[in-house]
């Protein structure tokens, strides 16, 4: 800024005033446009919150500020045996948490090896993983469906309509990109650390487990959270692979809820949507920088 003033010819008072005027006008215009953007972004959110507290629960009777707001919809959620929303949330959390834990552990091992060892075929292996990852696994959805059906005949807890099978599919879906992400993080940790440890007689495993693993723990947490959110939000694979009400994840359950009884139970859906969305929204807002960083290097949100 200072160099700009120095470089510009000395401003005459009148011109300075008009510039200030223009700047103020610009700020007003800017603020007005931002307000429009905020309305576009927030109106659906406000609308769904309002619906959740509207006791009449119908899509037709909704107003922006419900006249006699109550938590009736939330109470109805608790006592709806056809739409056990808390069972669905539990399923979602279970699937997402196990996926995230396994994904972090398995990818950390792989990424560490890619980062620390030099061996023949390492480069082509890394590039192959990147290439395979180009094909979204949703494309092979038919093959995955048939695969789980076949496995399920011999190992029932990994078959169709099981959380075990779904977790396996999610693990495969995220593996490649997570390996690349994490390898980048391992690369940023100086090799001297593990090398000096190994000079002192530590094995690779000890160097990894005792030294490197604690150092990258924050990064592992981010990868884990990304995996968690990704699995929690996933809809298509879950809706193909899960078949029964008590096994649905939240997204599948909410979708069916909406297609079955949309207009009448709008308020109840809204209440469920809010409960399901809040944890994820909080995670996103707290970790927005890391998530964007991770996504920029990897894929786009699903």
């Amino acid at each position: 800024m200072s160099s700009e003033i120095a470089a510009a010819p000395l401003p005459r008072p009148a011109r300075a005033r008009s510039m200030r005027q223009r700047h103020r006008n610009q700020l007003v215009l800017r603020s007005a446009l931002i307000a429009v953007a905020l309305v576009f972004a927030l109106f659906p959110v406000i609308w769904i919150v309002s619906a959740a507290f509207n006791p009449t629960s119908s899509l037709a009777s909704q107003q922006l500020i419900p006249p006699n707001a109550s938590t009736a919809n939330f109470e109805e959620l608790l006592n709806d045996p056809l739409h056990p929303i808390f069972v669905w949330i539990r399923n979602s959390v279970k699937v997402a948490a196990i996926t995230a834990l396994l994904a972090v552990f398995v990818t950390a091992l792989t990424a560490y090896a890619f980062s620390r060892f030099r061996f023949r075929g390492r480069r082509s292996l890394l590039l192959t993983i990147l290439l395979i990852q180009v094909f979204p696994n949703m494309l092979t959805i038919v093959a995955l469906f048939l695969l789980l059906r076949q496995i399920g005949e011999y190992v029932p807890w990994l078959g169709l309509n099981t959380h075990g099978g779904l977790i396996l599919v999610y693990l495969g879906a995220q593996m490649g990109i997570n390996i690349w992400l994490m390898k980048g993080f391992f690369d940023s940790i100086p090799r001297d650390i593990d090398e000096s440890a190994m000079v002192d007689g530590a094995s690779h495993w000890q160097a990894f487990w005792r030294l490197i693993f604690p150092l990258v723990r924050p990064i592992l947490a981010v990868v884990g959270i990304l995996a968690f959110v990704g699995s929690y939000n996933e809809f298509i694979l879950a809706s193909v692979l899960l078949r029964s009400n008590e096994n649905y994840t939240l997204m599948v359950g909410l979708y069916l809820f909406v297609t079955q009884t949309f207009a009448q139970s709008w308020g109840v859906f809204a209440a469920g949507a809010i409960i399901g969305a809040i944890p994820i929204a909080v995670i996103y807002i707290l970790l927005q920088d890391q998530i964007v960083g991770g996504l920029t290097q990897g894929a786009v949100k699903g």
Binding site: A37, A41, V45, Y255, G276, A277, Y284, Q288
Partner: peptide, 16 residues
């Protein structure tokens, strides 16, 4: 605030 639509699970946003 502007990030909020992105922070909500996509399916829930579409259903809204």
């Amino acid at each position: 605030l502007l990030i909020l639509p992105y922070a909500i699970p996509g399916i829930i946003g579409i259903l809204i």
